[in-house]
Simulated scan of single mutants.
Amino acid sequence: MLAICLRLCAMALLATMFMLVKTVGEYGVASTEVMFWRQAVSVPLILVWLASRGDLGLLRTKRMASHAQRAALGTAALYCNVTAAMLLPLSEATTLGFTTPLFAVLITALVFRSTVGPWRWTAVVLGFVGVLIISQPGHEPVPPLGLAAGLGAGLLVALVSFQIRDLARTEAPISCVFWFAFYGALIASLLLPTSITPHGAAEWALLIAIGVCGTLAQLLITTSLRFGQVATVVVMDYTALVWSTLYGWLIWDRLPPAATWLGAPAIVAAGLVITWREHRLSRAISPGSALEEV
Rank of each mutant, 00 (worst) to 15 (best):
T32H: 06
P101I: 06
V41L: 10
T61S: 15
V111W: 06
G54H: 13
T94V: 01
R63T: 09
G97I: 10
V41D: 08
L58R: 14
I107H: 01
Q39R: 07
F98I: 08
V48D: 14
I107W: 00
S52P: 02
T94Q: 08
S42K: 07
L102G: 04
T32D: 10
V34Q: 15
G57V: 10
P44Y: 10
V21T: 05
I107F: 00
T23D: 09
T75V: 13
P118S: 05
A40W: 07
G97D: 04
S114P: 02
Y27H: 15
R113Y: 10
A65E: 14
F18Y: 12
S114M: 08
L106K: 11
A77P: 06
T95E: 04
A65H: 14
R63G: 05
N81S: 09
G25H: 07
E26G: 13
L50S: 07
H67E: 05
Y27V: 11
L47I: 11
A51Q: 09
V105C: 01
L90I: 04
V82R: 00
T115P: 09
I46E: 06
P89V: 01
M17P: 00
W37P: 03
A72Y: 02
Q39D: 06
V34G: 14
L59S: 12
F112T: 14
M86Q: 08
T32A: 07
Y27S: 14
W37I: 12
T100I: 02
T99Q: 00
M86V: 01
